[in-house]
Design a protein around this nucleic acid. Structure first.
Lengths: 213, 213
DNA sequence: CTGCCATGCATTGGATCCAATTTTCAACCC
DNA sequence: GGGTTGAAAATTGGATCCAATGCATGGCAG
């Protein structure tokens, strides 16, 4: 079961995260199967996984499609991030090596060179998620990753809309977080991280045109 | 796909939550299929869903089994609950009807009659989860429900071990929460709820014999 | 008697096939 | 001309079948 199913699930996940399958769009089993040279069966199993992750919706006899999220839904998901990510960072803190800290710095330096939207999205994602994975608690990292995945489309739409104008705020916040993590100050780190997420949420709310309805 | 798969998934979920399939136990596809009078295919798809929910682990060519959780994992999951459930309650608060509040009171009264472990588990679950579902944000209620599901086995083992001795603490905390919710005081309600979960977590940590290793 | 290897059984992984439902599109009636 | 109804095509749901992998038992050699 697993090998083909896993391949298909990974493919579909990155297709959705990459914006190649947009909200509202239907995912036909046969299409994906041919595209990957597999039968429909692994595709169906992969779709069940993605449905459980919230990346697709499944209606009986109608198939799978990527769901639209309302602004309110995304807003609440950002509030969830605001609660969970400081916890994830605190749980990871004891396991972060000097090498991890160096990598954080590298990522941030690259972000500050003023990369394009796609590169920024990928680097920003790594900046946050790689840090959390050190805690080793799958249930926690999975929950956070799911929140990132489900909201990725709207984050991209927002950034394409606003451009890199307020990128300097992100940089300042990231630097504060890096600094606190380096000092192993989990209270400060959590505070800065929560503030960072909170500010992003508020800014996102200023652009309702990104969402459904 | 969905009707049979959903049936199988629901069946397996309640079998695991009911303790009829314990951690470490293997879930054979053929067994479940015969048990429900279906073919193996819906079973396989249901197992993918449960795997994504964390209720089973899937190893290639070896099949699915219910995973053991370490004390540390459960501890972190309780910390996640401590973060998420106050948020869920706050988001639900505006949508709670007088009827909902009445139901909360009913449940708590029944708990206070001194029911057995199984009834308590079910009533306690309803007390918490039904409240949150009013918020209407699937991503939030699902996340919380998953945390309850994954830790249910250890909660039951803990209660069977300690008996109803400290049930009065739960009752007092529930009453505080009900009262705050009735007053529509989301700050107090969140505080009491977080404290309730936190105390449970600490007490659970006193019984390492419940966990793996 | 013990440890290793091989053969056979059980279980899972994947593909193909058929039935059921939905969707599309066109003809027809108002 | 627009809306409704019908049938055909497309798509999904479910079952059966075959291959591949893992596990256990038993035989053989040391």
């Amino acid at each position: 079961m697993t090998v083909a199913t896993q391949r298909v699930a990974d493919h579909l996940r990155s297709a959705i995260l990459g914006g190649h399958i947009a909200p509202g769009e239907r995912v036909r089993q046969e299409d994906i199967a041919q595209q990957l040279g597999a039968s429909r069966l692994p595709v169906r199993e992969a779709l069940q996984m993605l449905a459980a992750e919230g990346l697709v919706e499944h209606e009986p006899n109608k198939g799978a499609r990527v769901p639209w999220l309302s602004m309110h839904e995304v807003d609440v998901m950002y509030k969830m991030r605001e609660q969970l990510e400081p916890l994830a960072l605190a749980e990871s803190m004891p396991f972060l090596t000097p090498g991890d800290l160096l990598r954080l710095d590298e990522i941030q330096e690259e972000i500050e060179t003023g990369v394009d939207v796609e590169s920024f999205m990928s680097l920003d994602r790594e900046f946050h998620l790689r840090t959390y994975s050190a805690c080793g608690i799958d249930q926690l990292t999975n929950a956070v990753t799911r929140l990132w995945n489900s909201t990725q489309y709207y984050r991209r739409a927002f950034m394409q809309l606003t451009g890199p104008s307020r990128r300097w705020v992100v940089n300042a916040e990231h630097r504060l977080i890096i600094d606190a993590v380096s000092r192993r100050d989990e209270v400060d780190a959590g505070r800065f991280l929560a503030g960072h997420i909170r500010r992003t949420r508020i800014e996102l709310r200023r652009h309702p045109e990104v969402f459904a309805e």
